Simulated assay, not measured.
Amino acid sequence: MKQIKSLYRRLLLPLLGGLALTACEKDNGEETRISEFGPYKKEIIAPWKGGTGSIPVLANQPYDIELINPDNGWLTLDTEGRGTHFTGDDYFKFQATTNDGFPRMEGIRLWTHNRADTVYIKQEGFITPKLDFSTRSIMVLGDGGQATAQLSTNLELEDLRQSIVYTSADEGGWISDLDISNGFLILQTDPNADPEALRNARITLS
């Protein structure tokens, strides 16, 4: 019986030593410093009349800022003579000019040695964009040729994203040369090689 107790004590002591070592490693891990970095807001709406806005940043490390498109012509950074390098919690300002056209957007990039973020400045426009088809579908001739759809818009075609999705079993590619003129969307269609088959497509402008 004494031999069994002695063996039990010899086995128990190494086990307790292992537990003490594990606890010490956990304490060291809790001392790791948390990295903090990021703008208080990721998106700011500026009025069409322009003006100055402020962007607070939460950080416990140095960081830099810059305009994504410095030649945008309407948005500038105002760091009050402090440059574009900051350390710790701080803020910087931006200056937007009057926007007498359509809404517009610019980005401001913030970065540290291993992290990056972006703030987007969206400025309202004096002119509200309009884009609306008077009808949601049109029929075009099987022989092909020009087709039109009435469209109410104050935008130019180059300012719009264009998407053509062919929704029937044909190979597609039979719509081309989209244009906007005198309140109409104008397009060209190729002849339908299969007079018995109805083909369809969806045109999206955005």
Rank of each mutant, 00 (worst) to 15 (best):
E31I: 14
E196M: 10
G29R: 15
G51D: 07
R202W: 02
E171L: 14
T76A: 14
G18I: 13
D132Q: 11
R202H: 06
A201G: 02
S134A: 06
S181D: 12
T32R: 15
H113W: 08
S181K: 15
Q123H: 00
G51R: 04
T32C: 03
D117S: 08
T22P: 02
L13R: 10
W74K: 05
G101A: 07
G51E: 05
S206H: 08
G81V: 10
M105A: 08
F184V: 09
K26W: 13
L11R: 14
M105F: 03
N72T: 09
D143M: 08
S54N: 07
R161M: 10
R115A: 14
G125R: 01
N60K: 07
I4Y: 14
T32W: 11
Q123N: 01
I45E: 06
Q3F: 10
R199L: 05
Q123P: 02
Q146H: 07
A46C: 04
P62L: 07
V57N: 03
G38P: 05
P39F: 00
N60Q: 03
Q61H: 00
E31A: 14
L13D: 03
A59W: 03
T148A: 10
W111H: 11
E124A: 03
P129E: 08
F94H: 04
L75H: 03
T153C: 07
T87Y: 05
T79R: 00
V119T: 01
M1C: 05
L12R: 10
A149Q: 12
